[in-house]
Amino acid sequence: MTATESVGERVRVTLTRPTFWVEWASVVGLVLLVVLFTALDSTFLSAGNIRGMLLASAILTILVVGQAFVILTAGIDLSVASVMTFAAVMFGLAMTHGYGILLSCLVAFCAGAAVGLLNGVLVAKGRITDFIVTLGALSAASGTALILSDGKPITVISAPLFELSAGSVGVVPYTFMIALLIAVLAHVVLFKTKFGTHVLATGGSVEAAQATGIRTTRIKIAVYAISGSLAGIAAILLVARVGSAEPAANMTFLLNSVAAVVLGGVSLFGGKGSIKGPIFGALLLTALSNGLTLLGVSQFYQPLAVGVVVVGAAFLTRFDK
């Protein structure tokens, strides 16, 4: 009896602890949405639709991991989506110039990493506010993408890329596997390595981190570089998905990347959060959009729904103070 009581007690304590709801808001939200949409439309949980949702969330998931690293250091990267656009155009140009798929992927990755590194150096060494630096990078990266592409989509035809975007094992698409692999790696880096602890410490208190000799400048540069590199990888998946490299602004990706991180319980003040939370946040946003479309809800209600969900999640984090 005492054992069960203590289990019950522990569950009660856990459920009444506000931090529990902050950490698990995105998961709870996702479960609620799944239940709701499944009740309203049985096709929601069909294998085809699950596969579709995972496919649609892969790119966002990768961007969200990068954004999470930056926000964990109390920064923000407003340029993720534009850097992805820029990297996509670089990828498209490399492909059309006959660089071959592997080299082109490397070009995309390096393009993203380079912009990220520049962001990091400007934020950490230049001591310019992250908001301003990445806002500038947002504009500069989209502008460069427009210039390089002359404002036109670059059609990329490649059998392996098509296979990458279309193939799956069961209901799990290859692209989502890549996203998941990145997420797992990110989790390990954040919680199992020295670097990860230093990221959390830098975000939690720059003064404390510096007092113990952590090179916070390097940590900051590193997280922006990570964010940029992941945007480069996302760019490859984006091109694979639509079959062309588009100089489009992709603003929805930017907003959703920040929203997913907040949904996932990462503090915008840095130092606290996880990788799994934001990933579930990304899945939640994808499921929300998918479910509303599936139910035939008018286009005008979708942004409203996203807004309500994001602010609702932010409200939960209020209790965490």
Binding site: T197, A201, G204, A209, A211, T212, I214, K272
Partner: peptide, 21 residues
């Protein structure tokens, strides 16, 4: 330090071993 230089959201052991993990 006067401000203690502790990271509030890290655990006691993480703070004890900060940067000498």
């Amino acid at each position: 330090h006067q401000n203690l230089a502790l990271v509030e959201d890290l655990t006691v052991w993480q703070n004890l071993f900060l940067n000498r993990e």
